[in-house]
Design a protein around this nucleic acid. Sequence first.
DNA 1: CCTTTCCTGGAGCGCCTGCTCTACTATTGC
DNA 2: GCAATAGTAGAGCAGGCGCTCCAGGAAAGG
Lengths: 214, 214
Amino acid sequence: MRTVNPEEHARKRAHILAAAAGEFAAYGVDGTSTARICRAAGIGSGTLFHYFATKRDIFHALFRDDLPRNAEACARAIARDRPEDGIRLLVDHLLTDLADPLVPGLAAAAVFQVNRDEEFARLIMADTAQVRSALETLTTRLAAAGRPLPFPPGRVAAWIQGLLDAAYLSAGEPDFDPATHTAELRRLVGWLTGGDASATPPGTRTSPQGDPTR
Amino acid sequence: MRTVNPEEHARKRAHILAAAAGEFAAYGVDGTSTARICRAAGIGSGTLFHYFATKRDIFHALFRDDLPRNAEACARAIARDRPEDGIRLLVDHLLTDLADPLVPGLAAAAVFQVNRDEEFARLIMADTAQVRSALETLTTRLAAAGRPLPFPPGRVAAWIQGLLDAAYLSAGEPDFDPATHTAELRRLVGWLTGGDASATPPGTRTSPQGDPTR
DNA sequence: CCTTTCCTGGAGCGCCTGCTCTACTATTGC
DNA sequence: GCAATAGTAGAGCAGGCGCTCCAGGAAAGG
């Protein structure tokens, strides 16, 4: 008998995934041939299809692996005493990879794939629903505490999520600055959650920093 | 001799473009074969390539045709006396097609293509820059008039544009309602332009309408 | 009428695709 | 050391691709 070494297996799998991520980000799913992934990973096609059933499966795995981490972040956010802290925590977590150069390409490929590939759509939907639910719980708590939200709690949650998605897509623009964008996004979230961010102190107009929300 | 009939030519071209738009929205550029476009348009491949040089060219034409209309809208917006009217005009113009069922698919395909196809990226960039410039002119005028913008005028313009893009992408979500989304977006734009939208009157929290900005 | 050009469908070409299959080596348990 | 199986490379296959090319119908000018 010979048993499988799960650790080595996972390492090799991750190696292939990393190589595939670069190709998918650059050329998309349809635009990336399996031969290209093999070349990038330095393996033969036999090896590739030993680890993954289909090309689509590779792309799915790239996002499926993030699901548990997001679930954990949601749980931590809800556990916070002050809802605004939870929202801040969740927003920060979801913005972690904003500076990753692969992100815009992968985000574009993902948005595209959601409209095309039903199985992938369900995968992403599960993740989205999870985050949405957490955000809605938190915004509902804010509303219950008397915060004057501009929209119903569910809609506020939807907008926060929309802003996050938009951030990842705009990360590919030529003069994109993650720090500025993050700061401004927090400001917008502050307004959406009924914070005092609407009171604009004079002089802030030209300063990219200076967000007192915490 | 025989002369070309430009009117008939344009009609046929538009017919092919309409058919292609449906296919591109459903399957993307790579996922749509030229044979499929031919079938959808009820023509042979000879005809298709008589009107368009390449498959990519068909996709480009789909967006290139909108450029002059957007330019005109920008000009009209800048010509307005009150900058907030101009912004409102431009935002409304850019949200015209939000209810079109093809829009989410085409937007996804476009976002994807921008990251892949350099020529298409330049095409979209030209359109984006044009709108951005108009918005920035208007927000700068607002700032000069003493309006307390939350960010520098250029950044406010960028955010308005980002919100518009996000709207088109989220238009594919299951419970998307164009009217609600538009109303809320105008509210956000109101805040971004230093309007009084931040003062939340009680009872607005559950009302999807009621935006007094004009 | 004839000529010229536009317009058209579809056969077909060369190429590339995702994936399978086979032959082989490396590593494990006994 | 032996058997069993995990892991690997790459040739090869069937099918689909974008696009070309050609033969002929349709329509305009003279």
